[in-house]
């Protein structure tokens, strides 16, 4: 996946580079195509240069994160070069059961929305999960149908329908940023749409709260790892 992205970025760079020089603009008009290309090329070049010497993301301690005063989830997008702490910007309910929480990255460019801890939407990650209906019972994952709407290609959405089973893999002790947590490991296997996905959840044995999970957010975004650092 990484090499694929590199090829795409490379192709984009080449196309842009063929036409790009430099320029400038001011005002409310749309910038001319050539200028946008030139800017994008500069962006891609600097991005490639930065990636080459990219430092690992800064390691925050739990104490530092606690000073923010907001619930925080650590996200890893396995398909993307993304590993970051997202801050909760919204917690609300709607007509469907389950607390909705919107998690926003520090640069405010990406967000992930969960319902009772289950991923129902992503934004700003590319080929995003637009919306979904997740099988849940009470406050956690359940067997049943999973429906996802994915933005795809030509600004369209495509639906995916899968049927999920749930297995309880028993108690498991996990560690999240230096804190040990007793959990039950639940595994949801879903089949359909020509493939198979496996979602893993580590739930609090007392109230079912999801401390950690690995969930699939559609063919574009792929698997996301979620670790609830600050409750």
């Amino acid at each position: 996946m990484r090499t694929l992205f590199d090829i795409r970025a490379g192709a984009g760079l080449l196309l842009a580079g063929m036409l790009a020089m430099s320029g400038c603009s001011r005002g409310t008009e749309e910038a001319p195509t050539q200028l946008e290309l030139a800017r994008a090329t500069q962006g891609v070049v600097s991005g490639l240069l930065q990636r080459r010497k990219a430092a690992p993301p800064p390691a925050f301690s739990r104490a530092q994160l606690e000073t923010v005063g907001l619930p925080i989830t650590g996200f890893v997008a396995e398909n993307r070069d993304l590993s970051a702490y997202f801050f909760r910007t919204e917690a609300r309910h709607d007509a469907t059961p389950g607390l909705i929480e919107v998690w926003l990255s520090g640069d405010q460019k990406s967000s992930v929305t969960t319902r009772a801890g289950l991923v129902i939407a992503t934004r700003g990650l590319g080929d995003d999960l637009l919306s979904s209906t997740v099988p849940m019972a009470g406050s956690g994952p359940a067997p049943g149908p999973l429906a996802q709407q994915i933005r795809y290609g030509d600004n369209r959405e495509r639906g995916l329908r899968l049927r999920c089973d749930l297995a309880d893999l028993g108690p498991e002790r996990i560690e999240i940023l230096g804190r040990s947590q007793a959990t039950r490991h639940l595994q949801q296997s879903c089949e359909g749409a020509g493939g198979r996905i496996v979602n893993d959840f580590w739930a609090d044995p007392r109230d079912g709260f999801l401390w950690q999970s690995r969930q699939w957010a559609g063919p574009g975004v792929g698997y996301l790892q979620l670790r609830r650092v600050i409750k």
């Binding site: 970025a9 910007t89 919204e90 609300r92 934004r123 990650l125 590319g126 290609g153 369209r156």
Partner: peptide, 23 residues
């Protein structure tokens, strides 16, 4: 190429959520 297969997947900055007025 296919017009339906972008060279780079569209990545648009996330919007801020709509906060329900009753909240």
């Amino acid at each position: 190429f296919n017009p339906r297969q972008p060279l780079t997947p569209m990545q648009q900055s996330a919007p801020l959520p709509i906060k329900p007025r009753r909240d």
